[in-house]
Amino acid sequence: MSSRRTTPIPVGILAAVGVAFLAIPLVGLLLRTPWSRLPELLSSPVALQALRLSLVCSLSATVIAVAIGVPVAWVLARSAVPGTTFVRALVTLPLVLPPVVGGVALLLAFGRRGLIGQFLYDWFGVQLPFSTAGVIMAEAFVAMPFLVITVEGALRSADPRFDEAAATLGASQWTVLRRVTMPLIAPALLAGTVLAWARALGEFGATITFAGNLPGVTQTMPLAVYAALDGDRDAAIALSLVLLIASLAVLLLLRDRYLRSAPS
């Protein structure tokens, strides 16, 4: 029997519209997928290059985000350094910053005439823009905040007295971090890492601005989709499908965190 808490009709209609709005494009993508040509489309040189590049760049960016993002999260959560509020705002900014602005900023900093880029080029001959390294930088730039936010939250809610207990047992600060603090926040670290990876995988705006769209060098999947849309629409759809599946996989992996939050 239905309970007395029925849904008001206008709310129900608008909710249905909302769900349809989100679902129909995805259904459309599935309906228009040229399933029989899929193996052929995905094994074309351009697609394979984009797949490989996306995988390499997003994983590298994730490693970088974890390596420098976790320390940032730790400092924000645990240290008494003044100005953490400002640093937190700064670190979180790429979350809301239009990616293309991030790309422009990266270009101004690391471009050949940029703040740091000019020295990199003059002294070492290193040129980051329009290189695979540039893609990794752009992806790490937009992905790291997801990791920092997630890990910082976990560090804040973890009981620091476990660290104290470990110290009284003779553990150095480094041992405490390695064997107690980090294992205690492992679930959040995993979630943050996966989120950061998903964000890196889908990165478009900062990448195309900072690293360009060179097949085999900087053309990751989202860029390849964009490029293919003008010519081979089926190829664009096939690559989009791969990205959709990757996103679904991430969602499933994080289902405990995001899908189970509503009380049943």
Binding site: E164, A165, A166, A167
Partner: peptide
Amino acid sequence: PPERRSVGYVFQDYLLF
């Protein structure tokens, strides 16, 4: 620091890892 003192500490709520 605590890790360099020869001390054993049993906490009220134990704090087992």
